[in-house]
Amino acid sequence: MAIQIRLEKMAYGLRFGGKKYDASQDTWEPIDGLSYSYECIKEFVQSGYRDSILPLPGSVDLICGGPPCQGVSGFNRFRKPDDPLTDEKNKQLVVFMDIVKYLRPKYVLMENVVDILKFADGFLGHYALSRLVSMNYQARLGMMVAGCYGLPQFRMRAFIWGALPSMVLPKFPLPTHDVIKRGLVPNAFLRCLVAYEETANKYLKKALVLEDAISDLQEVQNNQPNDVMEYGSDPKTEFQRYIRLSSKGVTREL
Rank of each mutant, 00 (worst) to 15 (best):
M1P: 03
I3H: 10
E8V: 15
L14I: 06
R15F: 00
Y21C: 00
D22K: 14
P30Y: 10
I31N: 11
D32K: 10
L34I: 05
S37A: 13
S37P: 00
C40A: 15
E43S: 15
F44G: 01
D51F: 04
S52T: 09
G58V: 10
L62E: 05
L62N: 01
I63P: 03
G65F: 00
S73T: 11
P84T: 06
E88Q: 07
Q92F: 04
L93K: 02
I99F: 04
I116C: 06
G125H: 06
H126W: 01
S130Y: 09
S134M: 12
Q138F: 03
R140H: 10
M143S: 06
V145D: 06
Y149Q: 08
P152D: 02
M156N: 07
I160A: 09
L164D: 11
L164Q: 15
S166A: 11
M167T: 09
V168F: 03
P170S: 13
P173R: 12
I180V: 13
V185C: 01
A188P: 00
L193I: 11
E198Y: 08
N201W: 02
Y203V: 09
L204W: 13
D212C: 13
I214D: 02
Q218N: 13
Q224T: 12
D227K: 10
D227N: 12
P235T: 14
K236G: 06
Y242N: 11
R244A: 07
E253M: 10
L254G: 00
